[in-house]
């Protein structure tokens, strides 16, 4: 066609992504399929509400639970609904330090979401890189990388996370790192599976025969076509990151009490259940359960919609 090929001018004629119009249409189709299930709609609403609630927690809840000046020891262990010294009713009761449970839960939800979403996003990035590299280059690189990934997948995530936490100690960055190590393999496997199929198709061969840099072919041409299955894995992995973090914190090896997540709150409340002070642990637990189950339900519906066997 042309006598000289410069990387950016003519070659971009190889379509990197579908034009904007079809993308909007695809999104609209996706939504009309998604809303077929009222359970999935409800789950989505719940997640949005919880994320907004966690994000705007300082403006919504009656108390900053970690401002020690505002805590009164006389308010400790008030059962749900009792009015404390602050002049308002503690809807979900107070804990051993006189902290309003509702406030503590929304602040804890914040920590849980931050950890779950950042761990999920980082694991996605690492997993995509590993999976694409393996599928694109093949040969020994592929054998080595996928062997490591398979070995990791054969071990339960909780165990890997425990190993990492044992090495790194407590704290938010440490936990996120541990979760990424424990979870990237799921993304790597899914990316590799989808990418090895795409890799053999003509459009990749065409893109490869141009002088485009390798990374550009991998991330601009190959990646968009392996994304749909990754979306499903990502939702499920965010839920499992949140529940893994809660488990680690419950075991006492996750977050310290100064940076409480839902798991830390439950762990703290667990000490008092024999005294009949159920509200310290049961309410954060209910929020944790609702969060995890809602994310999983959304993930299930996204999988159903994206599954080509279900398309009309």
């Amino acid at each position: 066609m042309t006598d000289t090929l410069t990387p950016e001018s003519n070659v971009t004629a190889v379509p990197a992504a579908p034009p904007a119009e079809t993308r909007v249409m695809r999104l609209r189709n996706f939504w009309s399929d998604y809303r077929q299930s009222w359970v999935a709609i409800a789950a989505l609403i719940v997640i949005v509400a919880l994320v907004l609630g966690a994000f705007f927690a300082p403006f919504l809840v009656p108390q900053d639970p970690y401002d020690l000046a505002k805590l009164d020891w006389l308010d400790a262990f008030l059962p749900p609904g009792t009015e404390g010294s602050g002049g308002y009713a503690h809807v979900l009761g107070t804990d051993n330090a006189g902290r309003d449970m509702l406030s503590a839960i929304f602040y804890g939800l914040r920590t849980s979401f931050v950890i779950g979403i950042s761990a999920g996003a980082l694991a996605l990035a690492v997993g995509i890189t590993v999976g694409l590299t393996a599928a694109y280059f093949g040969g020994r690189i592929e054998a080595l990388l996928m062997r490591i990934v398979d070995l990791q997948l054969s071990m339960p995530a909780i165990l890997l996370a425990l190993v990492m936490v044992a090495m790194l100690g407590q704290g938010i960055p440490q936990i996120i790192f541990a979760l990424v190590v424990a979870q990237y393999a799921y993304f790597a496997r899914t990316t590799h599976g989808a990418a090895s199929v795409e890799r053999r198709k003509d459009y990749i061969e065409a893109a490869r025969s141009t002088p485009l840099p390798t990374w550009r072919v991998m991330f601009k041409h190959l990646l968009p076509n392996v994304l749909p299955p990754l979306i499903v894995v990502a939702t499920v992995q965010v839920a499992s990151a949140i529940s893994l973090e809660a488990t680690l914190s419950f075991l006492g090896v996750g977050l310290p009490l100064t940076e409480p997540s839902l798991g830390t709150l439950i762990s703290n409340g667990f000490k008092y259940i024999h005294a009949g002070r159920y509200w310290l642990s049961i309410y954060p637990g209910i929020f944790l359960m609702i969060t995890v189950v809602a994310i999983n339900l959304v993930g299930d519906q996204v999988r159903n919609v994206l599954d080509p066997r279900n398309s009309r």
């Binding site: 809660a246 419950f250 075991l251 439950i266 667990f270 637990g285 944790l288 359960m289 995890v292 999983n296």
Partner: peptide, 14 residues
């Protein structure tokens, strides 16, 4: 599958 094990255990104890 999805509800954390420790939470169910705690409910059982309660």
């Amino acid at each position: 599958f999805s509800v954390p094990t420790f939470w169910i255990g705690m409910l059982l104890i309660m």
